[in-house]
């Protein structure tokens, strides 16, 4: 059984799909907490535009890049590239580390690994899915509604 409920909590068994969140609800993503965790990413929709801001870390816990309203500033040792649909950050070896890509103006894909301060994987894309492995995280916040909160 991939999911079970107890009290007001939903418990999810790792590695199993349990429920699908509708696309009109996933209009907000927050990983980490600005000012609290060394990394954080906030992806919102404002006036029909995807707006992504944050600070991402590399595997060693050092700052990989900073994002402000989609514009990326890559740290020394990493290269940023603009594409017709977003941005990429590549390592010195040319390997892709992180990518933002918009699809048909409707879906915004985050690709690559998002690391925590100790090098632990916070979230990653896998076969077209974006998997959040560790909180704190919020999905689907809107107005006064907190959305889905992962501690």
């Amino acid at each position: 059984m991939p999911v079970f409920m107890r009290g007001n909590y939903i418990f999810v068994e790792p590695g199993h799909k349990c429920f699908e969140v509708s696309s009109n609800f996933t209009n907000y993503l927050e990983l980490g907490i600005q000012g609290i965790t060394k990394y954080y990413i906030e992806a919102i929709i404002e006036n029909d535009e995807f707006k992504i801001s944050g600070t991402l870390l590399d595997k060693s816990g050092e700052i990989l890049c900073r994002l402000k309203d989609n514009f990326i500033e890559a740290s020394k040792g990493y290269n940023k590239e603009m594409t017709p649909y977003g941005y990429r950050v590549k390592g010195k070896d040319g390997n892709l580390v992180f990518e933002i890509q918009v699809e048909n103006d409707l879906i915004c894909h985050l690709k690559g690994m998002i690391y925590g301060e100790s090098g632990e994987i916070i979230a990653q894309d896998r076969e077209g899915e974006f998997i959040i492995l560790k909180g704190p995280a919020i999905i689907g916040k809107s107005g006064n509604a907190i959305g889905i909160k992962l501690d």
Binding site: N47, E49, M82, T83, P84, Y87, V102, D105, C108
Partner: peptide, 12 residues
């Protein structure tokens, strides 16, 4: 209108 940038569609 707000439209996707013709250079980088991530931005409007």
């Amino acid at each position: 209108v707000s439209r996707p940038s013709h250079i980088n569609a991530l931005h409007r």
